[in-house]
Amino acid sequence: MPRPASESVAGAMLGFRDFPELLQARGLLPVASPAVGGANQPTQTQATTILAFKFAGGVLVAGDRRATSGNVMVYDRADKVIEIDDHSLMAIAGSPAAAWEMARVLSHSFQFYRRTQLQEMTVSAKVRALSKLLRDNFGLAMQGVGAVVPIFATFDAAHPFPGGKLFFYDVMGAQFEAADYATTGSGSPAMRGVLYHENTYGRAPLRSLDRDSAIGLALRALDTAAESDTATGGLDPRGKIFPVIKLVTGAGVISVADSDMTRMLPTRNE
């Protein structure tokens, strides 16, 4: 009988709680070999701009659409803000191959846990699961080909004060909870400047912005990033290529439609 792969001998614990563990047992999870030598520096392959901040309705996560390889533009409709489950988003900067696979493992992990254990994974466990995937990927990152620096946004409904949560990571898997905003990718230095300024000296702190103002700010910020960073695709309303903006709210993940972005498109000084 094809027994559950988790079932070894009678009396042993039944069932994986961890989906990657199951994939490993079935030989389906490629594990990066550790870097040889040690002189290798992880190259920055984070050509993108992701920004995320908390607003009144939850968390907004926005990303540009450009995928680059060196100085070649590979694709102008990449979706770097990925829905992991009903209430979680992962936004990626770095190697797309590793990042999309990671997102796939992650979303299956959450589902698998809920189905087998008959309960939802807690927010801290979800955050930690991504951290573990990053650490397992560190071998590839050290070889300079598979570095991923993600942002994770989710809505914690189980918390005594339910609300949006925002986390960012480093390439080794260290997790940091952001109080107000987080950025990643090559365009992020400009982003941090914009978001810090808006949050501290702007008309209102980010967390008090309503939906439309939040979307407007995200569009302005992405345009600013694209102005100085060649690897960030900004706004191209003529080409009908809009950034991806998704909102994590108590009601779930909402994708902002292109028509909404057209409406919110910031006017420029002439």
Partner: peptide, 18 residues
């Protein structure tokens, strides 16, 4: 039931993933 349920979920999940 638990062993069969677990087996069904594992088979479906690995298929859905790969």
């Amino acid at each position: 039931i638990e062993r069969l349920r677990m087996l069904a979920i594992e088979l479906a999940s690995t298929e859905g993933f790969t």
